[in-house]
Design a protein around this nucleic acid. Structure first.
Length: 306
DNA sequence: CTACACCAATCCTCCTGTCC
DNA sequence: GGACAGGAGGATTGGTGTAG
């Protein structure tokens, strides 16, 4: 795991990276609790098959805004290179924000895999790596260590390059699950899909009715007994406020005070009815939407019309 | 035809989880 | 601790089915 600290070495490797198709990237940040966090390390992997760490380069960019700027310019903004992160939105804060192009986020990918295919308690890098790639004993202790001091400890360096390896493995596995979860709609077998659908529907109704019933009973019980927490659950509440005024009063106020108040109002079915033919005097803006609906038939019989 | 209930879609606000 | 996207849960709305 080459650990590069000199600006020229980093510049060289960044130049090489401009030719690859995909990069797997992670970062470490110093002073993350402060108002001004600093980027400490950028870890880059260019070969997802590599598990040795030889292909993970650790770029030391602590207090090196010029190098970071170069990385953003040559890699992050370059839409020809796919950049894979876990929870990309965090890293992107330091690496170009919205200017970054062609970003893949394994956190988002994982969350889009249906729960029955990937049942996980949470979507932390560690959890996914353990479940999906059978890595054991992943140690996340270094995550919150001091990434602002130099030299970095051996443990920190170990942690930094491993994260990149996990990332690439996770990504590859997620691509497989994604394909499995989203078959081509044009060639789906509707017979087997609807069979499974009906099968599940019955179980689901039973489970769901009991589940919702239990939930209500627990809410009521905890309120009645004034208990906000059990060993397994927590009950919280919050207040909503909605501010309302009559339309006539609002309209009068806007006119008398000369307030610039103009925005579209949805004319609900009731309003349209109340207006009657007066509606014709308004220049209405009509939007149409189509909604699709799946309804079960009574029970399959031999009738096959059309 | 009207009145009504129900359901799915959408919107809104507040909360939660993720990274370091 | 901070930023921020997405989720949870409630309210609102319009379409559909049913009864009178």
């Amino acid at each position: 795991m080459p650990y590069l600290t000199s600006a020229s070495e980093i510049s060289d490797i960044v130049a090489e990276y401009t030719n690859v198709k995909t990069l797997w990237i992670d970062t470490e940040v110093a002073d993350y609790k402060s108002r001004n966090p600093r980027l400490s390390l950028i870890q880059v992997l260019d070969n997802p098959q590599d598990m040795s760490g030889d292909r993970v380069y650790l770029l030391d960019v602590l207090d090196q805004p010029n190098i970071i700027a170069e990385f953003i310019q040559k890699i992050m903004i370059n839409s020809a290179i796919e950049k894979v992160f876990h929870n990309a939105s965090y890293d992107l804060k330091f690496l170009g924000n919205k200017k970054a192009k062609n970003i893949t986020c394994t956190l988002e990918m994982a969350k889009k895999i249906p729960y029955h295919i990937l049942p996980l308690p949470n979507y932390q890098l560690k959890t996914i790596a353990t479940a999906l790639c059978s890595f054991n004993n992943i140690d996340k202790q270094e995550q919150t260590s001091d990434w602002g001091k130099r030299p970095l400890t051996e443990e920190q360096i170990e942690y930094a390059y491993l994260d990149c390896i996990y990332l690439a493995q996770i990504h590859s596995n997620l691509l497989g699950l994604q394909a499995k979860a989203n078959p081509e709609p044009a060639t789906e077998d509707l017979i087997s899909l609807s069979t499974r659908y009906s099968q599940l529907e019955q179980q689901w109704k039973l489970l769901n009715s009991e589940f919702e019933h239990l939930q209500e009973r627990m809410k009521k019980a905890m309120q009645a007994q004034n208990i906000s927490e059990t060993s397994s659950h927590k009950l919280t509440s919050y207040d909503r406020t909605t501010v309302k005024a009559t339309f006539s009063e609002l309209a009068r106020l806007a006119q008398t005070q000369d307030i610039d108040l103009d925005f579209p109002i949805t004319l609900t079915q009731k309003l349209q009815k109340d207006l009657g033919t007066n509606l014709e005097q308004l220049s209405v803006d009509i939007e149409k939407t189509t909604s699709w609906r799946l309804t079960p038939k009574a029970q399959e019989t031999e009738t096959e019309d059309e």
